[in-house]
């Protein structure tokens, strides 16, 4: 259980010498500094780091929302750095799932319409049985016809996770998905994500600064100054805090 899962799992996404530079000359900032990282299929990875460490930039670049200055970002077999803006959009639609901190849902669409939005945009119907499973797992089966403003914050985030899952993407990126909710709701959302990985075999990468949230992951990657400085497998809140203290974060 604890030994080298890396060799047995294939990569869902990876970064090769990924570098992101903002500005130039004196004002140059290296948000990502030749990062090498692999996110394996079927695992739940958390990215942690202090403010300005580049953890959000890493996620955005990995997800095709932003581009790296040099190096490569690969999802499945696709090198994102070779794609046009339109190809990136289609890649996000068909192969990547997203959960944001807030404002995840289109207010004019019902919960179920939000869940199937990427597929609807693609003009496909998706896997009906799978979608039913996902909706069942959210525990919101009787509320799917409601609009977002009729759902609680936690319910909204669960719908957002369901949307990310619905298309069975290569990988799901979650950006502080529990940043805006109380701890009980956070536990409910994180549990749902945990299950999606453990029982449904999905791949999730989550950016967070909350050790408790990160403890739901299989693996925690620590970022400081645009570099990966450490990582931790099968973390607990305590072990994460311990690592963070050592990193001076």
């Amino acid at each position: 259980m604890t030994s080298s899962p890396v060799q047995t799992l294939t990569a869902a996404a990876r970064a090769v010498a990924a570098t992101k530079i903002y500005g130039s000359g004196d004002t140059e900032v290296r948000a990502l500094d030749a990062i090498e990282v692999t996110f394996e299929q079927g695992r739940f990875t958390a990215i942690m780091g202090p403010s300005g460490s580049g953890k959000s930039t890493l996620m955005h670049c990995m997800a095709g929302l932003d581009t790296v200055t040099s190096g490569q970002v690969i999802i499945g077999d696709t090198d994102l750095t070779t794609l046009s803006e339109k190809q990136l959009t289609l890649l996000r639609r068909d192969h990547v799932g997203f959960v944001f901190q807030a404002y995840n849902l289109v207010p004019t669409l019902t919960a179920i319409e939000n869940i199937t939005l990427p597929m609807d945009l693609a003009g496909t119907t998706g896997d009906k049985a799978w979608i039913d499973d996902v909706v069942g797992a959210t525990g919101l089966t009787d509320r799917v016809k409601h609009r977002p403003n009729e759902l609680s914050g936690g319910q909204q985030q669960r719908v957002a996770v369901a949307r990310a899952l619905a298309g069975q993407p290569q990988i799901i990126f979650a950006d502080e998905p529990t940043g805006n909710v109380d701890s009980n709701t956070a536990a409910e959302i994180l549990g749902f994500m945990r299950n999606a990985v453990a029982e449904m075999g999905q791949t999730i990468v989550m950016v967070t600064h909350d050790p408790v949230a990160a403890s739901y992951a299989d693996r925690v990657v620590f970022l400081v100054d645009g570099k990966i400085v450490d990582e931790l497998h099968e973390p607990t809140p305590a072990s994460i805090r311990d690592h963070m203290t050592r990193l001076g974060a």
Partner: peptide, 13 residues
Amino acid sequence: REIGLLRAVGMTR
């Protein structure tokens, strides 16, 4: 923000 979300989840321009 809504437009950003739509674009992020794959709405083309």
